[in-house]
Amino acid sequence: MKTVTLTVKQAPELYLECENITPDTFAGKKADEIAQLPAYQGKEDTTLGEYFTIAGEAGATAAETQIILKGDCSKMKYIGIKMTAGEVIVNSSTDMYTGGWMKGGKLVVKGDVHSFCGLGMEGGEFIIEGNAGNYLGASYRGDWRGMQGGIIRVKGNVGSDICTFMNGGELIVEGNADVHIATHAEGGKIVIKGNVNRRVGGQMVKGEVIVFGKIGLMMPGYKYTKDVDLEVDGTKANFAEYVGDLGERHPKRKGEPVYGKIFLKK
């Protein structure tokens, strides 16, 4: 695996759209070619070379390419978007849309990420060492294709509306979450180690939400069924199982309706 290191030399005045910072775009390119890749700032068409010092070179394919970002990337959007393989490591916080529509590979952000990150993710591994904003792993505004696959792990807290329209994959939050979890979900699994504010699983058709801490207020569309023992992310515990959202449309499997499930640690 070959490594490309991008060091921020100039902070953008507005926000820099870094959709080209992915192993897929970098693959097969040398530092000077990478410096020529376009990056928008507002309506201005600029290049990555204007904002980053670029060292090293990419591997022949995305899978053989590692990208390391140094310096403050908190005004950089779209890092790692649509990546299919390889590795991206960001040593700071990032802005919106980081890791959106990821299909594979590994993306590590050592700081916080802003909202709309990991949108529509299909595969790969996305690790956020700080906190995440709203709409993590959700669908793009208006779309119905939220997180489909892969895994997102957040070491800190997350904002609201996470995993809206989730269809698959797994989100693990080690801290707390705000309102609206898995709204409209039709699959997937969300683990929250801390507490959740409220409105978990509204209009959920299918999928699982596992909460270790407390839920501020359970939605009225959920019904307690039984207690179950589960092993979640390496921890064995006893959980209360709730099914719902009872007011929503539910598909049938072998004649029995399929419900979304909330597991609340006892």
Binding site: Y40, K43, D45, S139, Y140, R141, G142, D143
Partner: peptide, 12 residues
């Protein structure tokens, strides 16, 4: 109500 129809089409 379909902002997703314009996704990634914002560049001139």
């Amino acid at each position: 109500y379909r902002p997703e129809d314009k996704l990634f089409d914002s560049h001139k």
